[in-house]
Amino acid sequence: MFTGIVEELGEVAAIEPLKDAARIAIRGRTVTADARHGDSIAVNGVCLTVVGVDGEVFTADVMKETLDRSSLGVLRPGSPVNLERAVRADARLGGHIVQGHVDGTGVLLSREPGEHWEIVRISLPAELGRYVVEKGSIAVDGVSLTVVGVDGDAFSVSLIPTTLDLTTLGGKRPGDPVNLEVDVIAKYVERLAGAYAPGGRA
């Protein structure tokens, strides 16, 4: 489990295409400081398992489904990535509960600069719309954010200077894809409430 509080901005060191997957090498000084084989590290919000560590670079295998259903498939050597180690049980939950299981991808539609923050509008897949509400939580490329508005097939978030400076969201441009993970609590509530609906089953 993760919190959506990015620990550092890493960089893709290399990508090795495999038959039905890819092996990705990522450079990140902070996340590799105590990384071991089998640990979980979120890369742009996608939970990956560490298969090797060499200095400040860790490697992970990414299966085809993950490449197809997330924006990891468009990464190239040199691409910046948001990195976060799995949260410890005794640590503060600074963001919200993030599983690292991407629900879908959106596209950055527009940026509106302000004096102290920036409003970013992102497209929202139809199947995820019911889980996104104003003032609710959503993870965008692994960054825990508060939804400031929902408008049909899009939502907006407000990015503070720290988020702009220390995550990939500061460099995203209109047309760029982003990974989306909705609040898992909303999905559980929907599932449980469905059992009490006419014809529903637990």
Rank of each mutant, 00 (worst) to 15 (best):
L48S: 07
F2I: 02
K172L: 12
A22R: 02
S110K: 11
R36H: 12
R191T: 14
A13M: 10
V74Q: 13
A195I: 10
Q99M: 15
P177N: 05
C47S: 11
G94E: 11
D20H: 13
V140Y: 05
G38N: 04
E115L: 14
G175I: 01
T105G: 10
L9G: 07
V120E: 00
L83H: 13
D34A: 15
A33K: 14
I26S: 07
P198F: 06
N179H: 07
P125K: 08
S71A: 15
E112V: 12
L124H: 06
V150C: 09
G104Y: 13
T30G: 01
A139S: 04
V143R: 09
T59L: 00
S156G: 03
D39Y: 12
E65T: 03
L180C: 11
G114I: 08
G171S: 10
G78E: 07
G199H: 00
V81N: 09
L164S: 01
I160T: 04
V31M: 04
A25K: 09
R173A: 15
E190L: 10
E11C: 10
E8Q: 09
G200I: 12
A202I: 14
V143L: 10
A42V: 00
L67Q: 08
V147T: 09
L192E: 12
E134D: 13
F155V: 06
R69G: 05
F58K: 02
